[in-house]
Write a protein that binds this DNA or RNA. Structure first.
Length: 642
RNA sequence: GCCAACAUAGCUCAGCUGGUAGAGCAGCUGAUUUGUAAUCAGCCGGUCGGCGGUUCGAGUCCGUCUGUUGGCUCCA
């Protein structure tokens, strides 16, 4: 008998050779039906494989990430089986599951060209094969036999893969009539796959190398329940509707111009109002916490970046230097604000009494991103960071970190994001030479970050080896309204720049000391943050942020004068908007304001003009009744708070 | 950057196998003076992304450039 330890800590006894599936059955039939694979002593394996010694076993279902990955991997095999059945002679390269969901298979279709019009046929075949509930059978095979099999089949890709594998650890998996070289594991049988959809087709090189053959990559998704596929597709639809590029155009927030240049966003009036509101908000909050704003130029002498080390690191992959008429003089578009801020710190002697010195700037920087990486506002070549650099003494690090965490969390919460986690990136303990700065400093900084995050009550994930060479960091991850994860603001500790710029302060001991620097940007960049904000709100910005807060809609042009009077009276209350004077019916004006997602509509006709009132309508909600202007400003303030 | 697809009016899109461009919305003009998601009519608007080529003839075929979109070793 062997002991099987389950995740809840309970221990059960079974005959040696028992399978994970048997274990599941002994617990409940329902569980057994849902088991996709099992994690045995930390290794994900087929549920059918025998266990011969005392082990810990976790049964994996659709609710486990490893279960999903196994499911999708098996789905890739199912797709390959369907392809082979429909189009004999195809060669298969690799077909993994994807962490972000779904799977793909890279295939060499020979002379045949596959297109998305073939998807339906392939999906139908997959469903047909799935209904046969074919078992995924594992088989250990000798390298010679494996080579023979694929030589006969004429699949040079699998043969190449075999070259890299050792005899004795090669396995085949077979379901139905399809056999594939595969490490596994797989789900018990194809019958679990109830819903499949092929998503897209892309070119991909064999082994990702452009010198190799170009293969056809087919992406697909699969689920154990039809309903889950429907929901998945609905989520994709929803994401499409929220796409900030689409909304940015519809709401006239920003634009791009070929003439201005790729990846260089142009902020239109409405987008600018939105952005300025965000900046003002952040500026005020930062000033409350003792930040001082500074402004530095968009270009800097090359020497500045040689000093900071950025030139050596980014030289040829960036915008190239600007030459002046003067011989040998070169300027760089600034890729970062920190060197400038270091110069501010260093321009006169600093006392420890001035620390922490917190310098903030909405600094616009330019980076030459690869053209293929550009994407709407989220990946651009010119953007503005909500940047700040805190120069402090080592023993102030934790306190400063804590206030930055507080600030970040506060502003994100105000922005409507409530679920965050923090990723803490530390040194790679096996590679101490990769990092600059003393061990004591690193230990202290890492401890400061970990303690600060714990004190702030943040859920954290720690990644070893992910730190920058100059210091550890913490990144904020947020979840948006439709469940997507985004990486936002980052907080980094830096020992490097103070050293390169030879920054010093005079301590209470009358000796010179080197300050520690914290880089931090709660939003990251205004561009990227706003792209996330647009997608999170679907363009329905909170009242206090909306570019136009109220649309004043007149029933007929007889009331235009009163409408303007109302607009003027709202201005002192910091409520802004416009009067829709068009000669249109009220229904039309409402529709247009609704589509423009103006949060509040004030409807003005005969009765309002006579009684000095406004009829209030909330975007997406409808009529809120009529009120006096005083009542309305109170209503507005209350609404803006919530 | 590489691969693929796409680029037609301000926007969304139609235009069969090559035979000199169309719709809806927007805009303009007029009528209408309107009560909670589209009033009616008329008009304007495109060297079909740029350049080159094939052809008697190119939005349509080929090349090239620009831009956009999706992908670009999560290893069998």
């Amino acid at each position: 008998m062997i002991n099987i330890t389950l995740p809840d800590g309970s221990v059960r006894q079974y005959e040696a050779g028992v399978s994970s599936m048997d274990v599941a059955r002994s617990i409940s039939e329902g569980l057994a039906r849902n088991v996709l694979a099992a994690k045995v002593n930390g290794e994900v394996r087929d549920a059918s494989r025998p266990i011969n010694e005392d082990s810990s076993v976790a049964l994996l279902t659709w609710n486990d990430d490893d279960g999903k990955m196994t499911f999708w991997h098996s789905s890739a095999h199912l797709m390959a089986e369907a392809l082979e059945a429909l189009y004999p002679g195809m060669k298969f390269a690799i077909g993994p599951a994807l962490k972000d969901g779904g799977f793909y298979y890279d295939i060499d279709a020979g002379d045949r060209t596959l297109s998305s019009t073939d998807f339906k046929k392939i999906e139908d075949k997959m469903k047909e094969l799935a209904r046969q509930k074919n078992e995924y059978k594992r088989e250990e095979i000798s390298k010679a036999d494996a080579i023979k099999y694929f030589e006969e089949k004429g699949d040079e890709y699998k043969l190449e893969l075999l070259e890299g594998l050792e005899d004795g650890q090669i396995t085949f998996y077979t379901q139905g009539n399809f056999t594939d070289l595969c490490r596994g594991p797989h789900i018990p049988d194809t019958g679990k796959i109830k819903a499949v959809k092929l998503m897209k087709l892309a070119g991909a090189y064999w082994r990702g190398d452009e010198n190799n053959a170009q293969l056809t990559r087919i992406y697909g998704i699969a689920f154990p329940k039809a309903k889950e596929l429907t929901e998945y597709l609905e989520r994709l639809e929803e994401a499409k509707k929220r796409d900030h590029r689409k909304l940015g155009q519809e709401l006239e927030l920003f634009m791009f111009s070929e003439k201005v240049g790729q990846g260089l966003p142009i902020w239109l009036p409405k987008g600018t109002r939105l952005r300025e509101r965000l900046q003002n908000f952040l500026r005020r909050e930062q000033e409350k916490q003792g930040y001082q704003m500074v402004i530095t130029p968009h270009i800097g002498n090359k020497e500045l970046y040689v000093t900071s080390g950025h030139y050596a690191k980014y030289g040829e992959d960036s915008f190239q230097p600007i030459h002046t008429p003067k011989e040998g003089e070169e300027f760089l578009l600034k890729p970062m604000n920190c060197p400038h801020h270091c110069e501010i710190f260093g321009h006169r002697p600093r006392s420890y009494r001035e620390l922490p010195l917190r310098l903030g700037e909405f600094g616009t920087v330019y980076r030459y991103e690869q053209s293929g990486e550009l994407h709407g506002l989220s990946r651009v070549r010119g953007f503005t960071q909500d940047d700040a650099h805190i120069f402090c003494m080592p023993d102030q690090l934790k306190q400063e970190f804590l206030s930055v965490l507080d600030l970040t969390r506060m502003v994100l919460t105000k922005m409507g994001f409530s679920e965050f986690t923090a990723q803490i990136s530390l040194r790679d303990p096996d590679n101490p030479d990769k990092y600059i700065g003393s061990d004591e400093n690193w230990d202290a900084a890492e401890a400061a970050i970990i303690e600060a995050a714990a004190e702030a009550g943040l859920t954290t994930v720690t990644e070893l080896g992910e730190a920058a060479f100059y210091g550890p960091k913490l990144d904020f991850m947020i979840k948006d309204a439709i469940g997507r994860q985004w990486q936002l603001g980052t907080i980094q500790v830096d020992y490097n720049l103070p050293e390169r710029f030879e920054l010093e302060y005079i301590g209470s001991d009358n000796q010179a000391h080197r300050p520690v620097m914290i880089h931090r940007a709660p939003f990251g960049s205004m561009e990227r943050f706003i792209s996330i904000l647009i997608e999170n709100t679907a363009g329905k910005f909170p009242l206090w942020l909306a570019p136009d807060q109220v649309a004043i809609l007149t029933i007929s042009d007889r009331f235009n004068d009163y409408a303007h009077e109302v607009l003027n009276k709202l201005a002192p209350h910091d409520i802004s908007g416009f009067v829709d004077e068009r000669n249109e019916k009220i229904g039309r004006k409402i529709r247009d304001a609704e589509l423009q997602k103006v949060p509040v509509m004030l409807i003005i006709g005969e009765s309002e003009a006579e009684e000095g009132k406004v009829s209030v309508r909330r975007q997406g909600e409808g009529d809120q009744g009529s009120m006096s202007l005083t009542e309305f400003t109170e209503w507005f303030e209350a609404a803006a708070e919530s």
